[in-house]
Design a protein around this nucleic acid. Sequence first.
DNA 1: CGTTCGGCATGACATCTGTCATCCGCGCCG
DNA 2: CGGCGCGGATGACAGATGTCATGCCGAACG
Lengths: 201, 201
Amino acid sequence: MITVLLADDEHLIRGAVAALLGLEDDLEVVGEVARGDEVAAAVAGSDPDVAVLDIDMPGADGLTVAEELRDAGARCSVCVLTSFGRPGYLRRAMAAGVRGFVAKDAPTEELAAAIRKVHAGGRYLDAELAASAMAAGDNPLTQREREILRLVGAGTETSRIAALLRLSEGTVRNYLSTAMAKLGEPNRVAAVRAAREMGWI
Amino acid sequence: MITVLLADDEHLIRGAVAALLGLEDDLEVVGEVARGDEVAAAVAGSDPDVAVLDIDMPGADGLTVAEELRDAGARCSVCVLTSFGRPGYLRRAMAAGVRGFVAKDAPTEELAAAIRKVHAGGRYLDAELAASAMAAGDNPLTQREREILRLVGAGTETSRIAALLRLSEGTVRNYLSTAMAKLGEPNRVAAVRAAREMGWI
DNA sequence: CGTTCGGCATGACATCTGTCATCCGCGCCG
DNA sequence: CGGCGCGGATGACAGATGTCATGCCGAACG
């Protein structure tokens, strides 16, 4: 029997996935949490074989949590679940020692298959996702560029961003300009959208 | 036995919800589709008692589909499933004759309960959602403002928006200005974010 | 009927944004 | 060591953005 911990912020989805896994004879859901920052405690408490983490969560996102678990030397394997085909996430997940990567629009059987494979010490990559990650290539954005794109995406004014990062406004605009050039987008709104889509911010 | 049609673009989630509903003795999932524009055909084909529609779907969003079903005089009741607490969606759903409205982060039991209630001719509203809808009030944006916010959100340049809508650029900026004022946001990015959050675009 | 109001539309103006040339500092390699 | 490339940082400038005053039209109302 493989024990599983589920982390996803949407209660209904979490329950539905639990129901799905419950249909498998060799899988047992031993814990559920709604926030990234609750995962560590739950892993310590219920000691699951595999942790299934959604990426978009309040508290801490799934990838950050995976990095924490690796650094803490946790016993359990990690399987990440992602909404869209954000290729950039895959690299970070790999770096965090995640061995399972499943897209939410993958066929139903894939999740259980991924959990088994990961628990056996293997890797599981959604084929579509892996392909789009190859196609997209590396994240070309620097730390500063990502930071500023994130703030712009939150609707922050340029002046506030400059103050927050102790930069001149011109510098902030300049980072945005290089980011827009790298992404091939004509303005900040499009750049934020594109970077989000790629999983680069 | 209540027959159910599921519409959600994420395969895994759709399968998981189907598994969840499969646990209920009186519910049977008789069809699944991944796109809004496939719903009408599936309803005609499998003649379900209740259609469970996600709002965010390619092809046509859940609310548009609900309006279509109502206009076509479809027999089946509709239960809408929504990701975030986008209060603005609720009003549109009500107007479209939707009688069930469930948030994806609602407790697991709520979906089955909503389906039964809706099938019996009653209404089902997620309490949290209803409360936030009351708090948020009406959508203050005009048709034009919504149209332009949507285009800006897609990263379209002002000049292209003007061309698309046969307006002068100044007019486009003006609609954005009034939208920003109504939303209390300082720039277009923030305005788009706020409007999305409220379910107003 | 006249008035009033809200949505639509425009141009002019001040401000903000995006681009460019430039400089600094650091790590790397011949 | 000297030179090169890259990320970080800046200010100046042209062009895009946000605001404002204004006008038009149709619906609502006395």
